[in-house]
Design a binder for these strands. Structure first.
Lengths: 153, 153
DNA sequence: TGGATATATATGGAATACCATGGAAAATTA
DNA sequence: TAATTTTCCATGGTATTCCATATATATCCA
């Protein structure tokens, strides 16, 4: 299973083009759709990115909510309605839609942050704070990665 | 299952290259990805190293958290965002990214410390102190190795 | 047992390939 | 035709590969 790992900062040119880090492209290699899916994060001022195949899995998970529950509706709206599907060009770049770039406060540089199954795109300056907060949270809440299905509620 | 054992001190050249001890390489032999994954330790001024397969396992475990929960987000950020995936070159070396070398205070030499499933990379001088402390802790707390699935919560 | 040879490992430097990036050309749309 | 989007190509920088040498470890034979 390919994972999104590490952090890479790339430039956004005036046409909104950004190189997807080559390591991330490798994680997308054997997909039917050559590209990424992006949408606004619910928790931070950043973008969330997935492989297309993972979106399908997301759909299945949402099925675990009651079909007409407001939670299901809210989540589906937040995720699917807002998502954009961006193809890679011949040189491994995508074009960030203006609205998304604005939302994530991306001026000229974009930090691709690998989070395993997904990744995020941050303004490099904002990211630094976020990182420190995450580390702090892990330490102070004594968060650990559960064995087996330990995290299931 | 790969086991990392013993301690080896190797040189870091000016390009940041270090030979991974051959014993460690043997532990990585039958892996899909020929290389190691490194990130900053949360507890010490050293680096932690894993086989790629271990990261895959971590990824699966993290999947057990709700996808957009802050716990999932914090853990993934703390673990995956900081991690780097380093391939072995033809001679069994990796190149240490500058940021990581700096964090672990590695100037020209790196001590690879086998810890079973994982290993650490230390500044050889700092390691000596750490070792004494660890031995002391084991003695005074009468620490022992749990048997079977002792680690399960 | 000692010495010599062979094997494996570690290390340094040079050649090569890859990737990110900027700009221009071609194609598409209005 | 003008404006936009998409594809293509050129370049500089960086990372990866290749080769050559030194050091240590193991093997073999006398």
């Amino acid at each position: 299973m390919p994972l999104f790992l590490s952090t890479h900062v790339n430039k956004v040119d005036k046409k909104g083009r950004v190189s997807v880090p080559s390591g991330f492209r490798a994680a997308l290699a054997d997909q039917s759709f050559q590209g990424v899916v992006l949408f606004r994060s619910n928790n931070h001022e950043c973008l969330e990115g997935f492989a297309y195949s993972y979106m399908e899995e997301l759909g299945e998970r949402l099925d675990n909510f009651d079909l007409f529950s407001s939670e299901q509706d809210d989540l589906a709206t937040a995720i699917f309605a807002d998502a954009v599907q961006l193809p890679l060009d011949g040189d491994g770049r995508v074009i960030l839609p203006e609205g998304l770039a604005e939302f994530a406060l991306l001026d000229g540089r974009a930090a691709f942050v690998g989070l395993g199954q997904k990744f995020q795109i941050w303004n490099p300056d904002k990211l630094e704070k976020r990182r420190n907060n995450a580390r702090k949270a892990v330490r102070s809440n004594a968060l650990t990665v559960p064995k087996g299905n330990g995290g299931a509620s």
